[in-house]
């Protein structure tokens, strides 16, 4: 807007010129009024009911021209300056606010982006941790199962061994007992190899039945 240059204060030359013209008009009007230069015309106008006096008109024009420039210089120019200054200041303030707002929006977008990035990375890390833990858990479980199986196998083997041993012991014992019993019954020593074999054969048939 070019209003600030449109409503600038009048130049000194125009003020002085206007004041001179105005003063001349005032003096001229006074002289015309004094000398009654247009008396004939004014009289005829008065007769028609029109109270016109040329001298007063010319003097008023002079006063108005002087006042126009003086009012413009002393009062209107500061007023326009103040109002234009205020308008431009408002414009500046609004422009600043606008740029600040843009900056804020930019910053906000940045922060939001950063926050979402951080969140995503945190989630990834957590997922990775969880996966690791799950792997670990699976490993541990497998390990434990394997060990339990091992212990179980071992226990079973031991039990088998003990059982076998116990069976052997029992057989020996039973063999001894039957030999003793047979000795007692026969009151003679039957502890020879042939008998032992016999009993063993018998026992094996029994075992099979078991």
């Amino acid at each position: 807007m070019s209003q600030s240059e449109v409503n600038k204060a009048p130049s000194a030359g125009s003020i002085v010129g206007m004041i001179i013209i105005g003063a001349a008009a005032v003096v001229g009007g006074a002289i015309i009024d004094q000398q009654k230069m247009f008396h004939g015309m004014e009289d005829s106008l008065h007769h028609m009911g029109i109270p016109l006096e040329i001298g007063k008109t010319i003097a008023t024009i002079g006063v108005f021209l002087i006042m126009f420039k003086i009012l413009h210089l002393f009062f209107f120019a500061p007023l326009f300056e103040a109002i234009n200054g205020r308008t431009s200041e408002l414009e500046n303030t609004f422009g600043e606010a606008e740029s600040l707002r843009n900056e804020m929006t930019q910053l906000k977008a940045d922060y939001e982006k950063r926050i979402s990035d951080t969140e995503a990375s945190a989630r990834e890390q957590i997922q990775a941790q969880i996966k690791e833990a799950q792997d670990l858990k699976k490993d541990l479980m497998a390990d434990a199962q394997r060990k339990a199986e091992e212990y179980k196998q071992q226990a079973i083997a031991e039990i088998d061994a003990e059982k076998r041993k116990a069976l052997v012991d029992l057989r020996i014992h039973v063999t001894n007992l039957s030999l003793q019993a047979t000795e007692k019954i026969l009151s003679e020593n039957v502890d020879n190899d042939r008998n032992r074999k016999l009993i063993d054969e018998f026992l094996s048939t029994v075992e099979v039945k078991n």
Binding site: H46, A59, L71, L79
Partner: peptide, 28 residues
């Protein structure tokens, strides 16, 4: 149907200008 005299008109113009300039000076 006769208007003011020259001095009378000037007096009233002066009153008017006094009011105008006073108002503007206070407002300024």
């Amino acid at each position: 149907a006769h208007g003011l005299s020259f001095a009378g008109l000037m007096f009233y113009i002066a009153v008017t200008l006094l009011v105008v300039v006073g108002f503007l000076a206070v407002a300024k």
